[in-house]
């Protein structure tokens, strides 16, 4: 009876949703299981697919800025950017895990890269919702604007910046950052377990690169103000 209750508790702690609100217990339990990248890869795939939709919409709309002769290539360019976003999601997953792994080495972290990769993948879960919210904001924005073709090619960069720094697009960026902070919170618990770090060292391992990335994102969003 006691064993059955413990099994139920373990299953509850290892469900993916549990990682969102109780990541400490989730990763502690996961440390007792075999390394598996299947679920994290699915989470990253979901993030990548939503990111691909976002990239397709954004590129498709911004192609309206291009001269008429270039707009015929708009669907190809949008599809290309969607594929790039999908593949980029997986590359970014590996890069983030590698960065965390390397930084944690400075804190004498122990544990395999695969475990780090697995736990970082679980940390992508909030970004699934973040991508959905960002895509909704971007779609809402682009559906309410009229974009004129630009005849002066030298103005494309300026106008694109003007589009991306619109308040609605800035809000979409802020939403992404909020969800990234949530992911970072999960990564802290994941790295603490995967690399046997103290909470302080795990915070530094995750906080330094994520903090730099957030600062860069905020500068990109509001730098022109």
């Amino acid at each position: 009876m006691v064993n059955r209750k413990m099994d139920t508790q373990i299953r509850m702690n290892t469900t993916v949703v549990h990682a969102l609100i109780h990541p400490g217990a989730f990763f502690s339990e996961k440390m007792n299981a075999h390394e598996s990248l299947k679920v994290p890869a699915l989470i990253v795939l979901a993030t990548g697919l939503i990111g691909a939709v976002n990239a397709y919409l954004t590129t498709g709309y911004t192609m309206q800025l291009m001269p008429a002769d270039m707009q015929s290539m708009g669907s190809f360019i949008a599809a290309g950017s969607a594929v790039a976003a999908l593949i980029g999601g997986f590359i970014f997953w590996i890069v983030v895990a590698a960065v965390f792994f390397l930084i944690s080495m400075a804190f004498k972290g122990k544990g395999s890269f695969n475990r780090t990769l697995e736990f970082v993948g679980y940390g992508y879960l909030p970004m699934v919702f973040g991508s959905i919210a960002s895509t909704a904001f971007a779609y809402r924005y682009f559906s309410t604007v009229q974009l004129r073709p630009i005849t002066d090619v030298s103005q494309i960069a300026e106008v694109t910046l003007q589009v991306l720094q619109h308040p609605m697009m800035q809000l979409a960026g802020v939403v992404s950052i909020i969800f990234l902070i949530w992911s970072a919170n999960i990564w802290v618990f994941g790295l603490r377990s995967a690399r046997s770090l103290t909470t302080r060292n795990a915070l530094l391992t995750v906080g330094i690169p994520v903090g730099v990335y957030i600062l860069y994102s905020l500068y990109s969003l509001f730098g022109g103000l």
């Binding site: 800025l65 309410t144 604007v145 009229q146 974009l147 004129r148 073709p149 630009i150 005849t151 002066d152 103005q155 106008v159 003007q162 589009v163 619109h166």
Partner: peptide, 8 residues
């Protein structure tokens, strides 16, 4: 095109 964005 110099002011390509026109919000509704």
């Amino acid at each position: 095109g110099a002011a390509a964005v026109l919000p509704d």
